[in-house]
């Protein structure tokens, strides 16, 4: 099985350790969410995975083969990010043709269908498109190139609610017809969490969380009640965040819980992914 493997990866920019000793594996045919606050190293990681930049140390392999100077391996990946690689004078149609020349087997049929759905005029020049439509053009290319790994760095940048809706639909559509690996970074966690198989959460250049969404959600709880009760109930649990309203407390817990609440007057609810990630990124910041 072809897999992407990241081995002891470090990246230093201007004496700053942007990525610290990263080890990761990406399985085939799964949708990954690469999540984290601004500036934690998500884009750097994606650039490294497609060798747009070179690592300070460590290496990345596909199916056991180092990607460094390896065109065969790199040909299996496509990265969408905020860089515009296309000349502004190219028409959308020409961009599709060009991609076909580079990668081969471009899915023109699906590209046409998506362009229609998004209302993208194929005869317009790339430089004349609005920010949102540039993103749409790049999304369509990303969904129609015949690669095994599609990396989408902030694919919803500049998209309105309706276009984001179309994007999620198109993603499921193309993934259902041709299951392949998608690695997606996004700040719209509530919108994207239902689509994911796996979550990788980066904070300060380190992997904080790396698991299937199912297991993560199984261990994420919000426990509400009077402060004393909540404190007592969570005394042996991994508390990652707290919210107090007078004496009414909610403690956020990332741990295994068996629903033994009989002797406590508390409410145990699930915590959503967004809350979990906010808690995890603030650990250690408060006293």
């Amino acid at each position: 099985m072809t897999e992407i493997k990241i081995n002891d990866l470090n990246q230093v920019f201007n004496h700053q350790n942007v990525l610290k000793n990263i080890n990761l594996e990406f399985k085939n045919k799964a949708i990954y969410g690469l999540l984290g606050n601004n500036g934690v190293g998500k884009s750097t990681l994606m650039n490294l995975m497609t060798e747009r930049i070179l690592p300070t140390s460590g290496y990345i392999s596909i199916n056991g083969h180092n990607i460094h100077n390896n065109d065969v391996a790199l040909q299996q990946m496509y990265l969408l990010n905020e860089d515009d690689m296309y000349s502004p004078s190219l028409k959308v149609r020409q961009i599709f043709n060009l991609t076909n020349e580079i990668y081969g087997n471009f899915n023109f049929k699906f590209a046409k269908l998506l362009s229609k759905k998004f209302d993208l005029n194929l005869s317009l020049k790339f430089g004349k498109l609005s920010t949102g439509y540039r993103t749409i053009c790049k999304i369509i290319v990303a969904f129609c190139v015949p690669v095994k790994y599609v990396l989408l760095d902030e694919p919803t940048l500049g998209l309105d609610a309706n276009h984001r809706n179309l994007f999620y639909e198109a993603l499921i559509n193309t993934y259902s017809h041709n299951p392949r690996t998608f690695i997606i970074s996004s700040h719209l966690i509530n919108e994207i969490s239902k689509l994911l198989n796996y979550v990788i959460f980066i904070n300060n250049g380190k992997i904080i969380l790396n698991n299937s969404i199912e297991i993560i959600m199984k261990n994420s709880f919000a426990i509400t009640g009077s402060k004393d009760d909540v404190k007592q109930y969570t005394r042996n649990l991994n508390v990652i965040g707290k919210r107090n309203l007078g004496k009414l407390s909610t403690f956020y817990v990332y741990d295994h819980i068996n629903n033994q609440t009989k002797s406590f007057n508390i409410k145990i609810e699930k915590m959503n992914l967004q809350r979990l990630l906010i808690c995890l990124s603030n650990i250690g910041k408060e006293g």
Partner: peptide, 8 residues
């Protein structure tokens, strides 16, 4: 999954 944006 397409209608509700849920992983298949």
């Amino acid at each position: 999954s397409t209608t509700f944006h849920i992983n298949p």
